[in-house]
Simulated scan of single mutants.
Amino acid sequence: MNIRPLEKKDLPHIYRQKNSRSVMALWFEEPYNSFDELSLLYDRHVLDQTERRFVIEKNGDFAGVVELMEINTIHRHAEIQIIIDSKFQGHGLAQAGMQAGIEYGFNVLNLHKIYLYVDVDNAAAVHIYQKIGFQTEGCLKQHFYAEGEYHDSYMMGLFAKDFRKSVKVPVKADEKA
């Protein structure tokens, strides 16, 4: 598995995902965008410093996207989102992609906290997030509307210090006390 920045050439893959009601329901977003709209959004956001979007590749194939959104440089936190293409699900890419996005957020952007929202009924996703180290911070009742009904959502968070402990990042010689 590899991650790399999202590029304009990836838009046909994003277009397919954005036009799937079931996929967008997991992100609590409205589906169906025209390709022209998607291209305009890409052009408008390509230099936006509050977002980072990465393509997840497996053997050179587009397998999904991991995104850091709402990056706040004052409070040093951001939201993370992931979508794995259906043909690549069940291969461990969600966990690996999340970990890569989290490492980027903590080790490159110097974030203090990364958070996410997940439908309380999405047990598979909740399990993956807990395995990575996310803690449930609360439950937002009927907070998101998708597929014709309101959904409860967990807000889950992960602090840099806890993530670093869980992945056992070696301490550099100059950081030792």
Rank of each mutant, 00 (worst) to 15 (best):
Q142H: 11
F106A: 04
Y15M: 03
Q17E: 10
E79F: 09
E137H: 03
V66D: 03
A177S: 12
L40Q: 11
E51M: 13
G157C: 06
Q49Y: 00
N59W: 07
Y129S: 01
K87M: 11
S39Y: 10
K176T: 09
H45R: 15
D119V: 11
I83L: 14
V126I: 10
N19E: 07
Y150E: 00
I114Q: 06
Y104R: 09
R21G: 12
L111G: 01
N107S: 15
Q95C: 11
E51F: 07
A96R: 11
D36V: 09
N2M: 14
D119L: 09
F144H: 02
L140D: 00
Y145K: 08
H127G: 09
N122P: 09
G101N: 01
G101Q: 01
G105W: 03
A25L: 04
G157F: 01
Q89P: 05
P12H: 04
F88T: 06
Q89A: 06
E51H: 13
E79K: 14
S153F: 01
R52E: 10
V167W: 03
Q89H: 06
M98D: 02
A173L: 08
Q81K: 13
Q95S: 14
H45F: 15
L41W: 14
P170D: 08
F144K: 11
I114T: 07
W27F: 11
S39P: 01
V55R: 05
K161C: 08
G90E: 04
Q81I: 05
E103F: 07
N107A: 14
I71C: 06
L109Y: 07
E67T: 15
I71R: 04
Q89R: 15
V169A: 12
A94G: 15
A100E: 12
F134Y: 09
S34V: 07
I74R: 12
V126M: 04
G101A: 04
G90R: 08
R4I: 13
Y42T: 02
I114C: 07
V118D: 04
Q89N: 05
A96L: 12
E137K: 06
H77E: 04
I14Q: 01
P12S: 06
Q130F: 00
Y15S: 06
E149M: 05
E51Y: 10
L47H: 14
K18F: 13
Q17R: 09
G97T: 08
L140T: 04
N72A: 12
D48F: 07
S34G: 10
H143I: 04
E103Q: 11
N59R: 10
N72E: 15
Y15G: 03
S34E: 00
P170Y: 03
D162G: 11
P5N: 10
H143V: 01
A96I: 11
D10K: 00
I14E: 00
V167M: 06
F159K: 05
V55H: 05
A94H: 05
D36P: 00
T136M: 05
E51Q: 14
E175F: 07
K58T: 01
L40E: 14
V171R: 11
F28E: 00
